[in-house]
């Protein structure tokens, strides 16, 4: 029997978005399992609103009763359901990446508790989007697979509408004396 077949991508996202902001959008498959249990059980694994990366294991808890897990599973009394193929993971990379998305997400990505947790599930241009990032220039965005192409097309349309010269679209150099409260 042939070895496991290659997983076809859900969108044509590969390389730079149009427009001047120099953002790259690439689709990279991410095997994910949903771990369901009572919230108090999951609290011992990972508090709500947090993500955890340790080697190959990645945990994301943006639901009271569910944790998304990728990589080797640690034992625990939860019920697992494979969801990896139903979700498409995009990576948006570039200096403006998080700031660009923040314009369009219903929730503010620079709110204090979000900046600290670096992960959120919110809505962007009519799409449910799960976002997480280790630094603001490399953001993971997960949408339902059936909406992947639509999401990629939408980001392209938005990227076209920006100007490098428009001061309101990118964070300004920090004035040495200014308090650390960047909007």
């Amino acid at each position: 029997m042939a070895d496991a077949p290659e997983i076809t991508r859900a969108s044509d996202a590969e390389g730079f978005l149009p427009g001047p902001l120099g953002l790259r959008l690439d689709e990279e498959f991410l095997p994910l399992t949903a771990l369901n249990a009572k919230p108090e059980v999951l609290d011992s694994l990972l508090p709500f609103g947090r993500m955890h990366q340790d080697g190959a294991t990645f945990l994301l808890r943006l639901w009271p009763g569910t944790i998304w897990s990728s990589g080797p599973l640690s034992a625990g009394s939860y019920r697992a359901a494979d969801i990896g193929h139903g979700l498409t993971r995009f990576r948006l990379r570039g200096v403006e990446a998080l700031h660009f998305l923040d314009h369009y997400t219903c929730a503010t990505l620079f709110a204090p508790h979000i900046r600290q947790a670096r992960c959120i599930r919110t809505r962007l241009g009519g799409h449910d989007a799960t976002l997480w990032w280790h630094n603001t220039r490399d953001v993971h965005a997960v949408v339902y697979r059936s909406a992947a192409q639509s999401f990629a097309d939408h980001l392209r349309a938005l990227a076209l509408r920006h100007d490098p010269a428009d001061p309101s679209t990118y964070p300004r150099p920090v004035n040495p004396g200014a308090p650390d409260r960047r909007g």
Partner: peptide
């Protein structure tokens, strides 16, 4: 009971 939406996971 635990529910998971797997609509898009399965072709």
């Amino acid at each position: 009971v635990s529910l998971t939406d797997v609509s898009d996971h399965w072709a």
